[in-house]
């Protein structure tokens, strides 16, 4: 139809595999986000999408556009670094916020504070 017509198979195949893997990981992450029971479990699920879900699709985009533009197109790496460095910061705050709120409500199965931990280890 258009720009996709002249692409050789050795480019198209890895691009297709990476795109399918990436989007499947993102979907699995959100399925986990909806199905898992406790908040701490749910904190793990979206990392599927934000680690290799993003990574695979960015790699595919780099590969495809490097071929289409016939020059190395690498600026996707910036977006990858942005996502990889920033999402953990959000999750870190969310995990700590959940812990503080659970402690304030005296919820069961919450570990005691790291500060008052002299006896263990």
């Amino acid at each position: 139809m258009n720009h996709l017509a002249g692409i050789p198979l050795w480019i198209a195949l890895p691009v297709a595999v990476l795109v399918v893997t990436g989007s499947s990981l993102a979907l699995l992450g959100t399925i986990g986000l909806v199905r898992l029971r406790s908040f701490y479990d749910r904190l793990h699920a979206p990392t599927l999408g934000t680690s290799w879900g993003v990574g695979a699709i960015l790699l595919a985009s780099m590969l495809l556009f490097s071929w289409l533009e016939s020059r190395p197109v690498l600026h996707e790496a910036l977006l990858g670094i942005l996502v990889i460095v920033t999402t953990p910061a959000t999750y870190l705050f969310l995990g700590r916020a959940a812990l503080h709120r659970d402690r304030a409500e005296n919820a069961p199965d919450v570990p005691k504070a790291a500060a008052d931990d002299k006896a263990q280890d």
């Binding site: 701490y40 904190l43 793990h44 699920a45 990392t47 599927l48 934000t50 680690s51 990889i84 999402t87 953990p88 999750y91 870190l92 995990g95 700590r96 812990l99 570990p111 504070a113 790291a114 500060a115 931990d117």
Partner: peptide, 12 residues
């Protein structure tokens, strides 16, 4: 935190 399966919750 970027590794699925482990999450950083608190550090003293």
């Amino acid at each position: 935190t970027a590794t699925p399966g482990t999450a950083w919750i608190e550090h003293d």
